[in-house]
Every structure is written in C-alpha cells, then in structure tokens.
C-alpha cells in the first residue's frame, strides 16, 4: 500500500499492520501520542467521515453494520469508531456495539474500535477527533463514528464528521427523541430506522414538522469569528442543503442503498458549495484557539507560580478581590516578568 518512500514510520506502520494501528489508538486515548499525531496529520484528509448519532436503542450499531457491508460491496474500506459513555461512578464501561457488527468479521477491509468517553483532558471531542485522524491516515475510505446522542459532548463528536446522520425509531415514546436532545440542528440526514415497526408514519410526520420549523445552520468563520449562521446565507437559498428523511430497516438492509446515495449527494454538496472548506476552516480555528488558550494559560501559571494563583484565590474567598481583577492581575504580572 505504501508507494511513497517518504512516508513517516508511524504512517507506514499503521497502514501495514492492524496491530500497530490498534496500539496507536490506545496511545491516543491515553494522551501519549502527540508526536505520532503531528507526523500523521499531513497524511490524512481523504476519508469521508460519517457520524451516526441518536437515542439509545434506535439501531445505530445495526445501521453502521449494514452501511459498512454496503460500502464494502462498493469496494471501499471502512473503519468504525463506536463511542459509549464511561460510568461516572466507577470510571469503567461496558462497550457492546460490536454485538451488532458480527457480519463484518474476517474482512481485512474493515476495522472496528470501541471507545469509552472517559474523563479526557480537553474533552472527549478532541480525543475522538484524534482517533479519527489516525484512522484517516491509515487510509480507510469511509470512517463511521457511532455516538449516543444524549448530550453536548456527543453533539460535538458528531459535528467532527462531514456528514451527520441522526437516527430515530418509532415506538420509543411519544416525543421524537432528537427534539428533546436538541440534536436535530446537526442532522445532515435524518434516518427513521426500524421502519418495519408500527408508528413510522407519526414519527415521519413529527420530523417533517420539525424540519419545516427549523433552519439549518452552518458554523463558519465570519469577520474572524466562529459563528453559527443560517445555511442559506452561506450558499444561497436555492443551493442550501435540504435535510432529507430516509427510512431504513437496519436488520435486513432495506433502504441502505438509498441512504448511501443520500450520503454521496451530501458529500458532493459539501465540496461543490464550498461548505466543506468553510467548516474545516471554522473547526481548525476553534481547535487551534483552544489549544493556544491552554498553552498560554499553562505558560502564564508557570511564570507567576501556582502559589501566586492560590494566594489570589484566598483573597477572592475573603472578598478582597474579584475573580476578574485577579485574572487581570495575574496576566499583568506574567507578561511583565
């Protein structure tokens, strides 16, 4: 696979050996792969990243399984990152998504990795983004990222993807789950899975009503600021992407062909409209700024000393100084030295 002789050793290794890839992913999870990540970054950017999110039990893993099979039939290689929450009580996790992915075993063109959210420094979103970069550099054509769409961090993970599927299923209660979780805004495609179950019509109706009300937003850079603006303002009213609703039965493959066609359409839209570049610029702006903030903070604290910070905290407790003035004072002292 590695035609280029100049490939950095880590990139050559993860393209040739699944074991090397698996070990790199572990180092990333343990925050011990900064040098590897720097080396592999230039060799990524080719995979199509597809986020699959939705309420528990809607059939995300089953859907990922049948999507992966369909991509394999097209000759594309696929990796899957299945993210599940860490128990806040024990710090452990039971990761069970592979149960629904057994059809994919024994295929060298598929790689599945389960991941717990842990309490990672900088948030789970960043660790996941780094894991995706490793899989991307390992030259998979498609990367499927499964997350339980329940909270803000899952929404952040999903928004690292190019194309985000929000999965709904009938019969999970009266409300459409995405409305509660507030994740409808990030859906590029809405999937109504378990279309073989009763209640599909009412789920479809509820989703259509929601789509009519809502406006798709794009997160872009505007006057040097990261902003959420109406999609129509970015690409024009007629060109803006209209979130489609696709029905599937993940357990028998019904509707998967249609879903893949919509994903391909969305990918073409992202490229032709220029939205992909806008999104990338915005997310890199956010990431670099965040990392810079951390570096600056660490550098400043190092300069003034932790003791100085603690002393100001004590003074704030006694109401002798307010937090904002304390921060300004620390900055002044740090920069001056």
């Amino acid at each position: 696979m590695s035609e280029t002789p100049t490939l950095p050793p880590i990139v050559a290794a993860i393209r040739e050996s699944r074991r090397a890839l698996a070990r790199l992913l572990t180092r990333i999870e343990n925050n011990a792969a900064a040098a590897d990540l720097a080396a592999l970054y230039p060799h990524g950017g080719k995979a199509h990243l597809i986020g699959v999110t939705g309420a528990p039990g809607t059939g995300k893993s089953s859907l990922v399984n049948s999507m992966a099979k369909a991509y394999r039939a097209e000759g594309k290689t696929v990796s899957i990152l299945a993210v599940d929450p860490t128990s806040p009580f024990s710090g452990g996790a039971v990761l069970g998504d592979r149960i629904r992915m057994r059809d994919l075993h024994g295929d060298a063109g598929v790689f599945i990795r389960s991941m717990a959210t842990r309490g990672n420094l900088g948030g789970i979103a960043r660790t996941t983004a780094d894991m995706i970069r490793a899989l991307d550099a390992a030259a998979f054509d498609v990367i499927l990222i499964e997350t339980v769409g329940a909270g803000q961090s899952e929404v952040e993970i999903a928004s690292a993807a190019h194309t985000t599927l929000v999965v709904e299923a009938p019969g999970l209660g009266d409300d459409v789950q995405a409305i509660k979780a507030g994740i409808l805004e990030i859906a590029d495609i809405l999937v109504v899975n378990k279309a073989d179950n009763p209640g599909v019509e009412s789920t479809l109706r509820a989703l259509r009503a929601m789509l009519d009300l809502g406006h798709r937003a794009e997160r872009i850079m505007h006057h040097g600021q990261l902003m959420s603006v109406p999609a129509a303002a970015v690409v024009g009213e007629d060109e803006a992407w209209q979130t489609p609703i696709v029905q599937t039965v993940a357990t028998n493959g019904t509707g998967i062909g249609g879903l893949l066609a919509k994903i391909a359409e969305h990918r073409a839209y992202l490229r032709e409209s220029g939205v992909q570049t806008l999104r990338e610029r915005a997310s890199l702006n956010a990431e670099i700024s965040e990392r810079l903030r951390e570096l600056l903070l660490a550098r400043l604290i190092e300069r003034v000393g932790v003791a100085r910070l603690q002393a100001l905290i004590e003074r704030a407790i006694l109401r002798e100084i307010d937090p904002s003035s304390a921060a300004a004072l620390l900055l002044a002292e740090g920069v001056q030295e």
Binding site: T86, S87, F89, S90, G91, G92, A93, V94, L95, G96, R98, I99, R102, S114, A116
Partner: peptide, 15 residues
C-alpha cells in the same frame, strides 16, 4: 462484564 466495569475497567462485550 458488569463486575469488571464496576471495578473501573473497560469491557468490550461481543456476545
């Protein structure tokens, strides 16, 4: 699997 999780481990359960 649950006991190992409760002991802080990450368990990949394959069925």
């Amino acid at each position: 699997a649950r006991a190992l999780r409760d002991a802080g481990m990450e368990v990949i359960y394959t069925g």
